[in-house]
Design a protein around this nucleic acid. Structure first.
Lengths: 146, 146
DNA sequence: AGCTTGCTTGAGAGTAACTCTCAAGTGCTA
DNA sequence: TAGCACTTGAGAGTTACTCTCAAGCAAGCT
């Protein structure tokens, strides 16, 4: 049995967030002790961790509430839950690609700087002189298809 | 010369966001016409696009303001700006890895479902039965090192 | 000229998901 | 008995938008 603080530490999140999730009803059957303090057993910790990961994966609190409710309704809601997770995975996959493009975009500006550092006449790291994101995206596409 | 609305459309962002950025001072020397309407020339559009991409890459509005100020100060601030971009690229790279882990985590839960769909006794897509994120992370590490 | 439609403006309220502060209550130790 | 560490709920603050509103102006129709 862990307190809110201990549960938070174990999962590397803030105690504020743990209480926030609990107050939002994201942890079913969360027990309290005689002094009204939250008690996290293994099941509660499991839910908390799932909330943490689904949030990090891009599911909103609103959708998380729905998901929890569906879980509590029972196995008849399995297809719905499955669809939610498939959509979530697609979103997360899109974020992988987006983040890759962002890295490439920044590194492209940096490459200009590193190359011209000594002889730079123009102000390289000034947006008005930047290569376009479109050009960066095209570069990434080229790399991915190679 | 474009209006706020036209500039927004060209860059695929909302006109609200464009005005927000302009009000935050992120677009230096933004002109107005006789009726006080914003006029986006090529330079302004360039700044707007840079703001869009730096924001998407994870730079906060606060840091963006600083970056714009540094650009306006001149080439003496190049090393500072370079350092900011290097840090930003690192953050974006971290997000690539995180997003990959999130995809893998969700797909791992989905794989359980797909495998046991016919014979499922347990409620597969219920967090209390989920494989741990730690296990997922380990799997990804294994794939990356392979 | 009058009216409508469609754009713009600033001001300000609303949103998500925390994040922080506060006062009050409890338990443990010196 | 005091002090410190910890918990609680309530509520304010934060970021980066996002939306609503009333007011202003411009062009087109009647």
């Amino acid at each position: 049995m862990l307190t809110a603080n201990q549960a938070a530490q174990q999962l590397g999140m803030s105690v504020h967030t743990v209480r926030y999730y609990a107050n939002q009803g994201l942890i079913p059957n969360l027990q309290r002790d005689a002094h009204n303090q939250r008690q996290f057993d293994t099941a509660a910790l499991n839910w908390l961790q799932a909330c943490q990961y689904l949030r990090q994966s891009g599911m909103s609190i609103h959708d998380l509430k729905q998901y929890v409710a569906l879980c509590q309704t029972g196995a008849t809601t399995l297809p719905t839950r499955h669809a939610m997770l498939v959509a979530l995975a697609q979103q997360a996959q899109a974020r992988v690609v987006a983040a890759q493009q962002q890295v490439a975009y920044i590194q492209q500006q940096l490459a200009c700087y590193d190359h011209d550092e000594q002889t730079a006449q123009a102000d390289i790291l000034n947006p008005s002189n930047w290569t376009t994101p479109a050009a960066t995206a095209a570069n990434i596409d080229r790399q991915n298809n190679r």
